[in-house]
Design a binder for these strands. Structure first.
Length: 300
DNA sequence: TACACGTGGCC
DNA sequence: TGGCCAAGTGT
C-alpha cells in the first residue's frame, strides 16, 4: 500500500466513520439482530427503490416468510403478489428462485462466500458483496451508485461518476478499504449512507459533509461535470408502463383474469399484446385455460 | 457496452 | 409541470 494512501485516505475514513456513528439512519436491516436472510431481502428490495417505499414491504415480507425455506415453500405467484407496487416485479421472481436455490444448495442458509452468492438468481456484483459485508462483516468492496458518486467526488475530484465498469469500480473502492474487516464493512455502509444523505446526486449538502475540507472535487472548486450526458429513462407510453398496468390488474384479482379485463388497461392492442407476451415469456404471468391469465403457479 | 426493466416522489 | 432520480441485474 502506498504511503500516499496512508496519509490522505486514512483521515478521510476516520471522519466518515465518525459521521456515520453519529448520523446513520436507524433501519431494521441494520440492527445487530438482523439475519443474513433479512439483509439479503432488504438489498434486493432496495435495488432501484427508495428506502421509504421498502420499509413497509420489508416488514410484511419477512413476517410472512422469515426464512428462505418459508418462501421457497409457496408458489412463485404469491411472491409476485406480495411484491405489490415495489416495481421491477422480476425481482420477486428471482428472490423466490433465490430462496429455492438456498434450500437446494445451501441447506436453507445464506452463504457467506461472494462467488456462491453471485451464483444465486437476482444477486449481482453489488448485492453479493453487500450481503458478504453487511451480514458477515467481510472486507469486500461494495459499489453502488452512491459509492461511485462519493468516490468520484471526494477522491477523483469529478462532479459525477463516469461510466460504470464493475472491474474498475471494485478495484477503486477496494483500494480505499482499511485492512480490518469489520471496519472495512462499516466504512462500506458509511460511504453508501454519505452518498444517500449528504453527497447526493442533486444539490449535495457540502456544508454538512464530514470530508468537506479534503474532498478533491471541492478543492478543485466543484467544477461542473464534463463527461457524456446520460440518456433519460423515459416511462410514459413505454412497454414498461403497460407491463406495470397488466401486473397491477393481475395482482388485484384473486381468480384468473379474462382477456377482456386486461384489454381494458391499455388502448393500443399491438403494444398491449407485446407487453403481455413479454410478461409470459418472463414467467411473471401464466396463461391459464383459453383467454385467461393469472400470476404464475397459483392456478394449475 | 447498452438497453430493458416499475413506481412514485421531489424540485 | 415534468424530467430526474432511487442500495442493480440480466442479456
Amino acid at each position: 500500500m502506498s504511503a500516499a494512501r496512508r496519509v490522505t485516505i486514512r483521515p478521510m475514513n476516520t471522519e466518515i466513520l465518525d459521521w456515520y456513528a453519529e448520523s446513520a439512519r436507524v433501519l431494521p436491516w441494520r440492527e445487530p439482530t438482523a439475519t443474513p436472510w433479512q439483509v439479503l431481502v432488504s438489498e434486493v428490495m432496495l435495488q432501484q427503490t427508495p428506502v421509504a417505499r421498502v420499509l413497509p414491504a420489508y416488514d410484511a415480507w419477512l413476517r410472512r416468510w422469515p426464512t428462505p425455506a418459508a418462501l421457497a415453500a409457496v408458489p412463485v405467484g404469491e411472491a409476485v403478489r406480495m411484491w405489490g407496487r415495489l416495481g421491477y416485479p422480476r425481482r420477486a421472481l428471482r428472490l423466490h428462485g433465490c430462496a429455492v436455490a438456498l434450500v437446494a444448495r445451501h441447506g436453507g442458509e445464506v452463504p457467506d462466500d461472494v462467488d456462491a452468492l453471485l451464483a444465486l438468481p437476482g444477486i449481482g456484483a453489488y448485492t453479493a458483496r453487500a450481503v458478504a459485508a453487511f451480514a458477515y462483516g467481510q472486507r469486500v468492496p461494495v459499489v453502488d451508485t452512491n459509492v461511485r458518486r462519493v468516490v468520484a467526488r471526494a477522491v477523483e475530484g469529478s462532479g459525477e461518476a463516469g461510466s460504470p465498469s464493475t472491474t474498475r469500480d471494485l478495484a477503486a473502492v477496494e483500494a480505499l478499504l482499511p485492512d480490518d474487516a469489520p471496519t472495512a464493512a462499516r466504512l462500506s455502509i458509511a460511504l453508501m449512507e454519505l452518498g444517500a444523505l449528504v453527497c447526493t446526486a442533486r444539490s449535495p449538502r457540502c456544508p454538512e459533509c464530514p470530508v468537506r475540507t479534503r474532498c478533491a472535487w471541492r478543492l478543485a472548486g466543484s467544477p461542473a461535470y464534463q463527461g457524456p450526458v446520460r440518456r433519460a429513462q423515459g416511462f410514459a407510453g413505454t412497454d414498461r408502463q403497460v407491463r406495470g398496468l397488466l401486473m397491477a390488474a393481475l395482482r388485484d384479482a384473486d381468480a384468473p383474469v379474462p382477456q377482456h379485463v386486461l384489454d381494458a388497461v391499455w388502448p393500443e392492442a399491438v403494444q398491449r399484446s407485446r407487453a403481455l407476451d413479454g410478461l409470459v415469456a418472463d414467467g411473471l404471468v401464466d396463461p391459464v385455460r383459453s383467454g385467461e391469465y393469472a400470476l404464475p403457479g397459483l392456478h394449475g
